[in-house]
Design a protein around this nucleic acid. Sequence first.
DNA 1: CCCGTTATCGGTCGCACAAT
DNA 2: ATTGTGCGACCGATAACGGG
Length: 442
Amino acid sequence: MNEVVTEAGESGAEATGWSQENLQKLLASMKGILPKDDKTKPYKKGLKAVDWDKVAFPPFSAGECQERWKRLVRKMRRFRTLPELLDEAQELLLNPFFDKNIHPDLPKPPNPPKMTYIRKCMSRYARKNPGVNVVLMTKTFSKDYEKLSDKKKAKYAKKYRLAFEEYSRKMNKFCKENNLRVPIKKKKHKKRVTLKYEGDDKDKDFPREPPWHGFGLFISEHSSGVTGGEPSHGASFIRVMSQHWKELSENEKQKYNKRCAQMKREYKAKLIKYLDRLDEEEKQQLIEEKEIRIPKKILDQHKMHPGEPMMPSRSGFIYFHLDILKHAEKSMPRKERFEKAREEWHKFSEAKKNHYAKIVEENMRKFAEELPAWFQTLSEEEQGDYLRKKPDRIVFLQKYIDEKREPLDLHSDEKTSTTKVATRASARLRAKKDGNMFKVHH
DNA sequence: CCCGTTATCGGTCGCACAAT
DNA sequence: ATTGTGCGACCGATAACGGG
C-alpha cells in the first residue's frame, strides 16, 4: 500500500525486468565502456561509438539495453536553462582567472577575406594619414572590396580557405592533444537533439500527459525513440505516418483511440493523486508553472474549503522526505535533496519503511476523525455541495451521515426486506433534495 | 573598451507536415 | 493544440585594425 509514490510512473518495471537496480547497472556499464579521456564528445557522436554488445549484461540483450537507454534519455534535458547557467556563472566567478585562462596554444581562426583586405588598406592608409577615422575607413574599404574584380576577390578567398584549412588542422591537433571535442565541420551533418521539457527532473514522477488522440499516440509510438530508430522518415515523418494511418482499418484506428482514452483516464487519476499530496499554494504554483490544463470541475473538486482538514499523504516516502528536509542544509537545491531522499528511501529496510507506514496509518486515523467533526459544522446545503465536489470523501463520512440520517436504523438489524427497500427509497429521495449526495456513492 | 567590417561555430527557436 | 523530425533562421562570440 505504501509503495513509493515516485515509482508510480514505472509500473511496467517488473514486467520488463528494468528495475531500479538494473537501470543503475545499465548506466554503470555504459560508463565503463566509454573511452577514458574523452569527456567532451558530443552526445550523438558518443552514442554512435557505443558498442552495445559490450554494454549488455544478463538478462538483457544489446538491443534491449540500447532501447532502454533511448527511452531513458528522452526524459532528460540536454540543454541548460538560464538559472542553471547562472549557477554555473557564479562558480566560474570564483576562479580569479576565469576570463584569462585561455590555453596559450589555442589556434586562432584566420580573418575572413574582406577583413584581411580592410586591415591591409587601413594600416597603409593610417601610416600616411595619422589620426584618420577608423570607423569611416572600415566602411569605405568594405565598399572598395566589393568593387574589386572577381579574380582579385578569388585570390583573397583562396588565401582564406588555405588559412582556414591550416587552422582546422591545428585545431584538430590541439583538441586531440588536450582531450577536447573536435569542432563539427560540415553543417549538413549537424543534428539537433529534440528539445522538450519532458517535465523538469525536479519531479520525475510527475505524470506525463498522453497524446490527445489516437493519431497522436500512433505517431508517438512509431517515433524512433520508441521503435529503435529504424523507420525514421526524416522530416517527412509525419507525412509518411499519416499515410500509414490512413491505411489502417477502422478497427485498428479504434484500438488506438481506445487505448489513448484509457491513457488519459490513467493520467487524470495520477495527476490528481500527485496534486493531492501538495498544499493549495504549491498546487496552484505547479499548475501555473507546468501549464496544466485541468477542467475547472476537477480543480474545484480539489479546492480546500475553509477549515477543512487536509487529507494526509498515503505515501510513507513523503513523510520521510519531510524529515530529511528538516535536517538538510538549505543551500542544496530542492531537486537534489529530493533525489537524495529518493535514493536513501530505496535503500531502506522494510522495518524502517514500516515506521513511516505507521505514521501514515496514524495520520489517516486522525483524518478520519477530524473530517466528520469538521463536516458537521457545515450547513446541509454546504454538506451536499462538499460531497458533490469531493465524492471520494464519502468513505470517511458515510458513518456520520448514516448516524445522522437514520438514527433509528442503528438498532434494527433484523429489518424485513420491504423496510430495507423503503429505507433506501427514502434515502434516495432525500439525496435528490440535498444535491444527489448519494448518487456518487451508488 | 568602443566603433565597424565578415566567416565560422555552437546552440536555440520556429516551422512544416497531417489528423483529430 | 498536439504528435516527432530536421531544416533554416537567428544570436553571440571571435579575430585584427588604432584612435578617443
